[in-house]
């Protein structure tokens, strides 16, 4: 399965490259610091949100029913990578069209809505 070219274009320059290729506001901190801080905060938040999420339940049921979890994991994994990639590419596409401050406000409000949705899940159960 050859990875679609957007992934290779994302990974074209090695991560430890000093020049950060992102076009949004450049924070002067060392490239490594920002990358890992963003990576960790994204990883922890999305991992927690995904545990018990309907996608995970779907994967779980598929693997139990088919009794071949490897194939299910491959299919699900590729789908998850694709949706994450689509999400980030869409975010970047928006970043080119909307001023950073407006985008940050919209992103903040969107994340706030997700937070409220999660709290709703907790209270609702």
């Amino acid at each position: 399965m050859s990875a679609p070219n957007p992934i290779s274009s994302l990974q074209s320059d090695p991560i430890e490259a000093t020049a950060s290729t992102s076009n949004t506001s450049e924070t002067p901190s060392a490239f490594g610091g920002t990358f890992w801080r963003v990576f960790l905060s994204t990883f922890v938040t999305i991992f927690l949100a995904e545990l018990g999420d309907k996608t995970q339940v779907a994967t779980l049921l598929l693997s139990a029913q088919s009794r071949s979890p490897v194939v299910v994991f491959l299919g699900a994994g590729l789908a998850l990578i694709s949706t994450s990639l689509l999400g980030v590419l869409l975010g970047q596409w928006l970043a080119k069209r909307i001023s950073p401050s407006t985008l940050d406000t919209c992103a903040g409000i969107l994340l706030l809505l997700i937070t409220i949705g999660l709290i709703g899940d907790i209270v609702g159960q």
Binding site: I15, F35, I46, T83, G87, V88, G91, L94, C106
Partner: peptide, 13 residues
């Protein structure tokens, strides 16, 4: 979240 963070983060990768 990926869309929101992908657009607003200095390191989309």
């Amino acid at each position: 979240a990926a869309i929101a963070l992908g657009g607003s983060s200095p390191s989309p990768k």
